[in-house]
Structure formats: C-alpha cells, structure tokens
C-alpha cells in the first residue's frame, strides 16, 4: 500500500536524513583511516617491489610512480592520460555497454527470478536448462556471439548481459524462497488475491536478495565486459588494455586496469545506494541494531 507520503510526524525520519546519518557515522568511525592505510600498504608494496628493489619478475611490472606520471601527463609518452580525450572515450564506451547490459540483465533477470521462485511448475520447467547454461563461461560464448551478432557492439553487449543475467536471476529466486511462508499466508488471510500477494509480499520480500544479486551482477558485468572487449570491439577499457599489450605500452595496461577498478567500484556503490533508498525499512532496522 504505497500511499502518498503522509504529513511527516514526529516519529518519522526522512530517507535523506537517514542517509546523511549513516554516512556521517561512517566518516567518524575509524574505517576511512583503515581504508587509507590499506591503500598505502598496497601501493607501497607495489612501489618497492617493482621500482626500488626490482625484485624477481616484478622488474617487468610498471611501477606505480611510472604509471602515475604517465596517467597525469599532459603530453603522455604512449598517448593515453587524463589529458587525452581518447581516454574518456574508452571509459564512456565501456560504461555505456555496461549500462545497457546491466539494464537488459536486470529487466529480464528480476522477473525471471521472481517467477522461478514463485511458481513451482515454471521452476521445474526452466531451472534445469538455466542451470546447464549457467556454468558455461562467458569466454566460451565469444565465437558464437561473434557469429550470431553482426557489428562490434552487439556481441560485446550480449556477452556482458549473459553473466549479469545469471547472477540477478539466481539471487532473485533465492530471495523469493527466503520469504517467511507466514507472510503470504497472512496476506491471504487479510484478503489479498494471488496477484496482490505477488506485488505486496513476494516482490518487496525478495528485494534484499535482489539487490545483493544486482551488486554481484554489476561487478560481473565489468568482468565479462573487459573479456569481451579484448576479443571484439575497437573502443573500451578492455580493448585499451589488450591493444596496449600488443603495442608494448605497458604503463597504459595499468592505467586501463585501475580505471576499470575505480569505475566498477563506483557502479556497485551506486547500486548499493539505490538499494538503501528503496529499502528504508531495512536501513532503519540496521541503524537501530548499530545503536543497541
């Protein structure tokens, strides 16, 4: 019963206030400093191994100093840095593909998973096929994707969608199965029809799992995107990484890799935020738990 927001009463906390509360709390806790320390340790070790001691095979790994200098160079040696429009073109093309693939995977995967969890007949009908296709790695689909889809874009988007779809559908199904059977029973007692139970109980009840699935799915999308771009396509971060290898521009490989990491992290953070926004009840329960 999503009724228009009633006049804010004393007991009611707005979504935005709740959001601010959580993030100011996160900033005050020791975690940001631990996070910085973790990064410092990681980059420090990389720097020492590759540039200072040139230890063993790490000698052939471009060091962080070298990568940073190239990355922030207005006149990059290998033609790729924060100052070259090409760099943003690669990011934008990858981002666009992930967005399209993620949208398709979510649009198909959530309803598919909901029906898998909701209807036994439907599950017995489709789940075995689904489970047989799921373990086939994205890379194994590459030849077929290129044969089946014309052009550069569609095969890459198809491959990216595939793995995301599995993650979303499977988690959504588990979400439906995780719902306490008392909830649909209670709703039936209160006079809800089958469809109303689906809309008011099954969908919101599965939402926590759906968002877990979406977070995995967006990560998997980046994972398979880069693999797909290495094989096909002529722009994108995966393509950049692969072509830099072919052209012996090793620091650019690392620029590409770090960029995937940053954009990927940002996209799953966005999904998490969207989840928090849609599940205020959960955010508030958790916030209450912290206070206790």
């Amino acid at each position: 019963m999503a009724e228009g927001k009633p006049a804010t009463s004393a007991g009611e906390i707005g979504a935005w206030a709740m959001f601010m509360y959580r993030y100011s709390k996160a900033l005050r806790s020791p975690t940001p400093y631990l996070m910085l320390a973790g990064f410092a340790l990681f980059f420090g070790a990389w720097f020492l191994l590759s540039e200072v001691f040139r230890f063993w095979r790490f000698a052939s790994l471009p060091g962080p100093r070298q990568v940073l200098i190239e990355w922030f160079n207005p006149n990059p040696v290998y033609g790729m840095s924060l100052y070259t429009p090409d760099y943003y073109m690669h990011i934008w093309m990858s981002l666009r593909r992930v967005l399209i693939a993620f949208a398709i995977a979510t649009g198909l995967g959530v309803p598919f998973g909901l029906f898998l969890g909701w209807s036994k007949v439907y599950r017995e009908f489709t789940f075995p096929v689904f489970e047989t296709l799921r373990p086939i790695p994205v890379l194994a689909w590459v030849p077929l994707a290129i044969v089946m889809f014309r052009g550069d874009e569609t095969p890459v988007i198809f491959l990216t969608t595939l793995a995301s779809f599995y993650a979303t559908a499977l988690n959504t199904m588990l979400g439906v199965q995780s719902i306490d059977p008392s909830f649909p029973r209670a709703a039936a007692c209160l006079g809800a029809s089958k469809w109303q139970i689906f809309r008011h109980i099954i969908v919101p009840g599965a939402l926590p799992f759906i968002f877990t699935g979406l977070q995995i799915s967006v990560g998997v999308a980046w994972f398979s995107l880069v693999a797909a771009e290495m094989v096909s396509g002529e722009y994108g971060l995966g393509y950049l990484i692969n072509s830099s290898y072919v052209n012996v521009q090793y620091p650019v490989i690392l620029i590409g890799m770090i960029s995937v990491g940053i954009v990927g992290y940002a996209s799953s953070a966005l999904v998490r935020l969207a989840g928090d926004y849609m599940m205020q009840w959960r955010v508030r329960e958790l916030a209450l738990g912290e206070g206790r």
Binding site: M1, E3, P6, D180, S182, F183, R185, A186, A187, L190, G191, A192, S193, Q196, H200, I201, P204, G205, L207, M279, W281, R282, E285
Partner: peptide, 20 residues
C-alpha cells in the same frame, strides 16, 4: 512468530486488509 510485513510501516500493515 509474527507476520507483520517488515517492509510496510505499522500503519500500512494495519490498513492492508481492507485496502487489498
């Protein structure tokens, strides 16, 4: 074990029956 819908406020829970 109680079956209030956790994603609805108490008021929405109480009003659920007659509305559906």
């Amino acid at each position: 074990n109680g079956a209030l819908f956790p994603w609805k406020t108490n008021l929405e829970n109480v009003a659920f029956g007659p509305v559906v």
